[in-house]
Simulated assay, not measured.
Amino acid sequence: MKESVHEMAEQGPIVFCTGGGCTAKLGAGVLSRILEKLPRGEKDPDLLVGYDSRDDAAVYRITEDIALVQTVDFFPPMVDDPYTFGQIAAANALSDVYAMGGEVKTALNLVCFPESMDLNVLGEILRGGAEKVAEAGGTLAGGHSIADTGVKYGLSVTGLVDPHRLTANDTGRPGDKLLLTKALGVGLICTANRVGEAAPEQMEAAVRSMTTLNKTAAEIARRYEVHAATDVTGFSFLGHLHEMMGEKLSCVIDAHAVPVLPGAWEAADACLYTAAGQRNRNHTGPFVRFEKVPFPMEEILFDPQTSGGLLFAVAPQDAAALEAELQAAGLPAKIVGTIGEKQTPEITVTYE
């Protein structure tokens, strides 16, 4: 089976990997215009987080101490190896539960696959996803598949969270420190890789980042006073940061402190960015002021991430200790900014 999979992977740039991951998402601006027109219905007091909050997952209270976390995510391949793609897609879907402060319990496969393609490829995708669900401590409980013209894979995930320890994305407080747990740049590196401009070790580092679960970061963060959290995915670091501000806060980011994957700067400097990155700039750019930030760094901050890290709003007295513990666990976590009272512009990015 492995020979067949590798043969398909070698042919993949045309039929398998055409630029997927979270770069395939619809733009935030388009989604906002659509969602605001949907009928809301009667408000359910037990729906603690719904789609109207632009958060990472839905949260529904079952009892005073138990709430369900529900999320779904799937996309086309961004790498040529099916097994690796399965791992990345699963890690990305599972991440939303961690961003809400929850624990993964069950997952369902979501599969779109051409009937004409080698089914061994599908087997490898599902194997990669199943391994990540198991690593998360969850149970793979089934799924749904349809025949399609292209490959798409992901998960519907259910988790549990204590409603009193829920970390929504827009509940940060003035004075909180912003802490990012993974390096940025996977969109740029994957784009460079598709055109043969990424060194093998650069792509390997990006894959390691994308296949790393946010489980460890979330578990460590529970020991500290974290007021808000989100995972950084297709809307970019700045796009998800804009959602965290929730139109009631502002922040200052030190871009020099932001962890960046090797090769991302060079790819941005060579203009190897994505259409999704430019959509992110168009949507979020009006809320951002750059102060002496080099253009490649701007592009990195707008770069769509696939299976990106968690971005925490941490009480200032806990931030340094949380950063140190995350780094001791092998994560490239860094304090990258500070939240303040609402002002214009909403986000100021410096490069000190």
Rank of each mutant, 00 (worst) to 15 (best):
N109V: 00
L140A: 10
M100H: 05
F113M: 12
P114F: 04
A67L: 07
A130L: 06
S145R: 06
K132E: 14
G143R: 06
Y153I: 02
P114Q: 09
S116Y: 10
R61N: 01
M117Y: 15
E124A: 14
N109P: 01
E124L: 00
A107I: 07
T139G: 03
V59E: 04
T158C: 10
V121D: 06
F75L: 00
T158Q: 13
D162C: 09
I66H: 09
L160Y: 11
P76V: 05
N169Y: 10
T71G: 07
S156K: 10
V59N: 02
G150H: 11
L108G: 10
D162W: 05
T84R: 13
D81Q: 04
L108T: 09
L178S: 14
T149F: 00
D148R: 11
G86V: 05
E103W: 11
G154L: 03
V161Y: 14
I146M: 08
P82N: 03
M117P: 11
P174D: 08
L166P: 00
E115G: 12
N169K: 14
L140C: 11
V59I: 08
A168K: 07
F85D: 06
M78V: 12
A130M: 10
E115K: 13
S145P: 00
P163H: 06
M117W: 13
A91C: 11
T63R: 09
G175F: 14
A134Y: 02
E103Q: 10
L155V: 04
N120L: 06
L94H: 13
